[in-house]
Design a protein around this nucleic acid. Structure first.
Lengths: 209, 209
DNA sequence: TATTTTTGACCAACCGTTCAACCATAAAGA
DNA sequence: TCTTTATGGTTGAACGGTTGGTCAAAAATA
């Protein structure tokens, strides 16, 4: 018989797990995964080194948990399973959502880009992405998680062909869109306070709507 | 007295130094600087670990030497000290040069983006860059090296104002150009064989000429 | 033989990880 | 109300392994 109820324990555990993951994400992003140390994370989370291993099996498992949580947060934010269809009216909203998710989760994106830039980490942790930011495949053991907005985007640009003339090249337009999106992402990851951000966002919408 | 002439020694030393740096650059880019090991580099360069320290004082010094060499190569490739002026006619050539320098030195760019994504490495090795790809400041001890094409680009877009109408916003146009350039760079670093590359390049030139 | 290159065993430091021992809590028993 | 007790939280010393770096000795060269 447990002195505390099962639920109490789980709530406390979940809170502490979240705290550790928050601290670790920042440290991973700042120092890089390999240079980051369990000691540093434990100290900044206000717990002992040993306790880290009560919550996460290993440093690698901690990274996996962080990545999975972040991908799920982005996934839920975009709510792609709802319809998976991007209308022209929703396009503004879509771009603004991307802008917001980049701003709000900068540490994650910093870490994400670092990981996908490294071949060996990419293989080890299965953070596969031939098209980062657009397609994120991530699986740990049995579970598999996939965030893929490439289908939605492809669909959107193919439909544009109907309203544009025969000279319209949907593939080229989409590639330019993806390039712009990634360039915007990298820029936004570095520079946080950009007073021209609204202008830039509007221009991107104007160019690809 | 030295059995070989001073010059002979220096030539051999320079060659071996270059070999080590080539191997190290690939390994740093693939595994990440911190995960990369001196042992691995020595083995793949066909020398012993101890000899590494005959050529470079430390792992950090090796990274600095690699970064400095790469920045100098890019610098010489662009030949910016020649005029520092980018005319409209040269714009095509300029974009194609960027494309080529991204393709030819992919390992360096992979490493570069990894480093500038990490705050602590950025501080430690002074690879400063508020605008990566556009401005690279790098100094080691006394020496200082700077690659900055931002001035040339700013100048180019300010001049565009004269031929465009009063509605033309040079700052916005330049920001979009930089975003596009960085997005193109990130894309090109990941994907090496893109049959649509020529189309993309032409479109970028068309958009910002 | 004089000089430089090259080696690999060696070292201290640090890393991720483990574990036996304590601590805190709250229900159960007196 | 106070003590007991069971349970999971928490600690930090300790461990094995790896790393960057050193150095005395050997090999290579002209």
């Amino acid at each position: 018989m447990s002195p505390r109820t099962q639920k109490q324990f789980e709530e406390i555990r979940e809170e502490k797990r979240a705290l550790i993951m928050d601290v670790a994400l920042d440290h991973f992003a700042n120092a890089g995964y390999h240079a980051a140390t369990i000691n540093h994370i434990a100290r900044h989370a206000g717990i002992s080194k040993g306790l880290m291993y009560n919550y996460f099996d290993s440093k690698e498992a901690l990274l996996e948990a962080i990545m999975k949580r972040s991908v799920m947060e982005v996934y839920e934010y975009f709510d792609l399973n709802k319809d998976g269809y991007l209308s022209e009216d929703e396009f503004d909203f879509f771009i603004r959502k991307i802008s917001a998710v980049l701003r709000n989760k900068r540490s994650f994106w910093r870490l994400f880009f670092q990981l996908v830039l490294q071949n060996e980490v990419r293989e080890k942790f299965s953070v596969l992405s031939s098209n980062p930011l657009i397609k994120m495949e991530f699986f740990t053991g049995e579970e598999k998680f996939l965030l893929d907005i490439s289908g939605v985007i492809t669909d959107y640009f193919m439909r544009k062909r109907e309203t544009r003339g025969p000279d319209y090249d949907p593939i080229l337009d989409m590639n330019m869109f993806l390039i712009t999106l990634k360039g915007y992402a990298i820029t936004r990851i570095y520079i946080d306070d950009d007073e021209d951000d609204e202008k830039t966002i509007n221009r991107i919408i104007e160019l690809f709507k």
